[in-house]
Design a binder for these strands. Structure first.
Length: 705
DNA sequence: AACCCCGAACTTTTT
DNA sequence: GTTCGGGGTT
């Protein structure tokens, strides 16, 4: 059976799949069959009897990847999904903590705060402590807390050099106290708590170390410090860790991912098996050559060169538009043409660096009537009506859940205003109790009638819970809370009503596939907020950020806005590391394309309410010229944007948007000007070199075009 | 409690 | 330019 399992693997893939039980690092380039290697290795370990389902742990970053892995394993051999530990870091940690809640010091039915819940918990904390949230913005405090947790630091381990940090640290401590009191755990806490559980409980640690002899890690370049420590601890008994990653696709340093983990892994685990998967099965030659050439400009890589046995294929098409509007129009025309030639719209993607860029593109697409789908909006379980419904469900399970209570005590409106809430909050804090208990004791001043009614409502709902299954509980929650009623009366509530109905169906599906448990359902809702994409229906063009495109592939890719300041983004220009991450991002974008790649840029675009002029991205010049086909080389920019330019035309003729050449700084675009005659200055954007004010009288600028 | 207005932000984001 | 959120008003 293993022969059919292994057939069709190339030599490197084969070597990786059949490695003995030693720690190994697999450098898997884009499109090199990484998921196949991971799943086949698991199937091989199982089918050869080297490992039991019980002894394997495989960890990914997204639920999507975890599901994909499970599905593909199941396609190769019969597996028991329960005994295989395949999941996200957070999912597996949750699993561990649910099993050992007592040892972890958690209540049996602890709830998970998603980022939005965490933020509102922090706001509530600041209010309760009377802290000025101007001086300590909740966002910042959240970052501080999460950042420390992701480094494995509890409050007492935070080093302070100034009063401000000392205060943040004190708030971190208070936040922990609040979470403990309410029996809730945020995302970072799931990781840290289970790390500490294993670290401090020798018996448990020994058990799991002995159990998981094989550990496989996907997207290793995206692990953060704590995740790495977690893996190291769990593998401490000599487990064979099979780490798969690609340092060139590390694009999440900004949220704590530490590529350095790959180097550390080599030394810490004494890895002497490093396998490179460099054969790419996705893209044609020119596309790969472009990607390779681009990424070669980064320093400190582990080193890797993708190759293919496919033909060179088409050149990369480059289009330089005069404006963002024209860029969008060009794309619409090309997409239309490809579609006429028989390409599915869903096999084409428009990629951009930042979400704001989608606007112009969407506008042009909308006008053209081409169906399109934008990734990245609100997900199902993040919608307010869903969060409201779940808050009622939470209250039914545990009315002392302050977060949930505050979310819905006055939604739908029932006459409980801010003043009442303040009184309730103070009473609760004074008595060291939950807000629910304060509400029950009637300490709500004049509005106590309304509060009493709310207490009655929740108690009434709780009284009806016995004997109901999850689906019926959800139904009860949305009906008796008045949510349904409220949205039915709301002119714009139609979609929300439908979502609430979908929630009932989601619950029904959940109890079919899982256990009939409110806690489990709520946990899943926090851990998997749902798909990012709109309902897949008709064939539609795909629009998304480059980040969102990671892991996907398309017949044709349009990489848009390839301009200095946008890609690489202005905010990344200050450090070389940041620019290198942008370059990796561009590398990811390019390697999404199978056959056709378009790179487009606009000489001017609306940004932050004003027209901005930019030059081509340095990344474009890092791609060998012979791979590119300029669709409009020598193209004269169209008239300046129709918007009137405030200033009178300068007598030197260097109007905003003019292309100039400087002997030292190279090619640039005039962005602004000032003064006349001998004191005339112009501001020029030289892209990589920066934006500079130059005295026209001295600077030897030549007008080009 | 609904409404309105003004100011601030505005790169990327999974769990 | 637009949106989002907070604060003030009706």
């Amino acid at each position: 059976m293993s022969s059919s399992l292994l057939s069709g693997l190339n030599p490197e893939q084969y070597a990786a799949v059949t490695l003995p039980a030693v720690p190994a690092l697999i450098l898997a380039g884009a499109g090199s069959g990484k998921t196949r290697v991971l799943t086949t290795r698991i199937a091989w370990l199982l089918s050869t009897g080297q490992a039991s389902q019980h002894g394997i742990l495989a960890v990914t970053f997204t639920n999507k990847a975890a599901k994909e892995m499970l599905t593909r394993i199941a396609a190769q051999l019969p597996v028991n999904a329960r005994s295989l530990w395949v999941g996200t870091f957070h999912g597996l940690c949750n699993r561990l903590l649910r099993m050992h809640w007592r040892d972890a010091g958690l209540p049996e039915t602890f709830q998970i705060l998603d980022s939005a819940d965490q933020l509102s918990a922090i706001k509530r904390l600041l209010k309760a402590l009377n802290i000025d949230d101007e001086k300590y913005p909740p966002r910042e405090l959240a970052n501080f807390i999460n950042g420390n947790k992701e480094e494995g630091r509890r409050p007492h381990e935070v080093e302070c050099w100034d009063d401000y940090t000392r205060q943040l640290k004190a708030l971190y401590e208070e936040y922990e106290r609040q979470c403990r009191r309410e029996g809730v755990v945020d995302f970072a806490e799931l990781l840290l708590r289970s790390y500490e559980l294993l670290r401090d409980n020798a018996a448990l640690r020994g058990h799991y170390q002995a159990r998981f002899r094989y550990m496989l890690v996907d997207e290793f370049q995206d692990t953060n410090r704590l995740q790495y420590k977690w893996l190291k601890l769990l593998a401490g008994g000599g487990a064979a860790v099979f780490a798969v990653g690609d340092d060139d696709q590390s694009i999440y340093a900004f949220r704590g991912a530490n590529v350095g983990n790959m180097r550390d892994f080599e030394t810490d685990f004494k890895v002497d098996t490093l396998i490179r998967l460099e054969q790419n099965y996705r893209s044609q030659g020119n596309i790969l050559d472009a990607a390779n050439a681009l990424i070669a400009h980064n320093r400190g890589r582990l080193g890797k060169n993708l190759w293919t046995d496919q033909a060179a294929g088409e050149p990369i098409r480059v289009f330089e538009a005069a404006s963002d509007f024209e860029e969008a129009q060009f794309i619409v025309d090309e997409v239309r043409q490809l579609h006429r030639e028989g390409q599915n719209l869903s096999d084409m993607a428009l990629l951009y660096r930042s979400n704001a860029q989608s606007r112009v593109l969407e506008h042009a697409l909308f006008q053209s009537g081409l169906p399109y789908r934008v990734y990245g909006g609100l997900r199902f379980f993040e919608r307010q009506e869903i969060k409201h419904a779940l808050a009622y469900l939470r209250l039914m399970a545990n009315p002392e859940d302050d977060n949930a209570l505050l979310r819905v005590i006055n939604f739908p409106a029932r006459g409980i205003g801010n003043r009442t809430l303040e009184i309730l909050g103070e009473t609760a804090r004074g008595g060291g109790s939950s807000i629910w208990l304060a509400a029950c004791s009637g300490g709500a001043g004049r509005s106590s009638a309304a509060v009493g009614k709310f207490v009655q409502l929740i108690e009434g709902m709780r009284a009806q819970m016995a004997g109901l299954n999850l689906t019926e509980l959800v139904q009860l929650a949305i009906e008796q809370s008045g949510l349904i009623e409220h949205y039915r009366n709301d002119k714009e509530g139609q979609e929300r009503l439908e979502n609430l109905e979908q929630l009932v169906s989601a619950a029904a599906r959940f109890i079919q596939d899982n256990e009939d448990s409110v806690t489990a359902f709520l946990t899943q809702a926090s851990l998997e907020a749902g798909e990012h994409e709109a309902a897949p229906g008709q064939d539609a063009l795909q629009l998304m950020t480059v980040h969102a495109a990671k892991g996907l592939e398309f017949h044709a890719v349009f990489l848009t806005g390839v301009e200095e300041g946008l890609f690489p983004h202005d905010n990344s220009l200050s450090s070389n590391e940041a620019v290198e991450e942008e370059r990796r991002l561009a590398y990811v974008a390019i390697t999404r394309a199978r056959q056709r790649l378009y790179i487009s840029l606009a000489q001017s675009r609306m940004l932050h309410g004003q027209t901005r002029f930019s030059i081509a991205s340095r990344f474009l010049s890092e791609i060998p010229e012979d791979l590119l086909k300029w669709l409009n080389r020598g193209y004269a920019p169209a008239a300046m944007p129709t918007r009137k330019i405030e200033k009178t035309a300068p007598e030197h003729g260097l109007r905003v948007g003019a292309n100039v050449e400087h002997p030292k700084f190279g090619h640039g675009v005039v962005v602004d000007y000032d003064g006349t005659g001998k004191s005339a200055n112009v501001q020029v954007n030289f892209g990589a070199v920066g934006v500079k004010w130059l005295a026209l009288d001295y600077a030897r600028l030549t007008l080009i075009n």
